[in-house]
């Protein structure tokens, strides 16, 4: 070993690492080839379900030329009963991706949360398919103009211990309502 501290030895080190890295890369490419379509399909299904949950009748087209002053709206889908807005407000920990359905008169039809990383048992309740989660999301149905939690003078009851998440959801709904106003 001692005499091997030459260029040859360095080359051996580099080669070993190179081999390991390439084997890992090839293996990952294989796994990715199997999982990528499945993941893409799951995501598409999730978006589809979220839209259908907030917009009765589903959507016909995706609108790309919308005006959004809040910077929170990422996608807009239009259907015969109104619009579905994909909005991304920042929650307690990270961005929340949610879908807001707004009817043609500018009233909220419903909201559903696509993905989030809120605290399990607190903020995560906003997205849960439990009684508490349904009740929280149900509060937004029929609202127009702008919404806020009771702490901020509005009439949305925040989730216990998750004011920040509740505020985030409100800001997402407001962004969608504002954007719907711009669409006319």
């Amino acid at each position: 070993m001692k005499t091997e501290t030459t260029a040859k030895y360095v080359l051996r080190l580099a080669l070993t690492l190179l081999i390991i890295t390439s084997v890992v890369a090839v293996a990952l490419a294989g796994v990715n080839a199997i999982t990528a379509p499945k993941i893409a399909q799951l995501n598409a299904e999730k978006t589809q379900q979220a839209i259908e949950a907030v917009l009765p009748g589903g959507f016909d087209t995706e609108i790309t030329d919308f005006t959004d002053d809040t910077g929170l709206v990422s996608k807009v889908y239009a259907g015969e009963n109104g619009y579905a807005f994909e909005v991304t407000p920042s929650g307690f920990d990270n961005t929340i991706t949610m879908m807001v359905g707004v009817d043609l008169e500018g009233k909220v039809l419903g909201i559903s949360i696509v993905s989030h990383t809120e605290t399990s048992g607190l903020g995560a309740v906003a997205a849960a398919s439990t009684a508490a989660g349904e009740a929280f999301r149900g509060q937004f149905v029929g609202k127009s103009g702008s919404v806020s939690v009771t702490k901020d003078g509005g009439d949305v009851d925040a989730l216990t211990g998750a004011t920040i998440t509740s505020r985030a959801v409100c800001s997402g709904v407001n962004a969608a309502l504002a954007c719907a106003g711009n669409l006319g």
């Binding site: 890295t21 890992v24 990952l28």
Partner: peptide
């Protein structure tokens, strides 16, 4: 993108 974790840690 799926190589992110490996490449980042290296």
């Amino acid at each position: 993108e799926y190589m992110q974790t490996v490449v980042f840690i290296l």
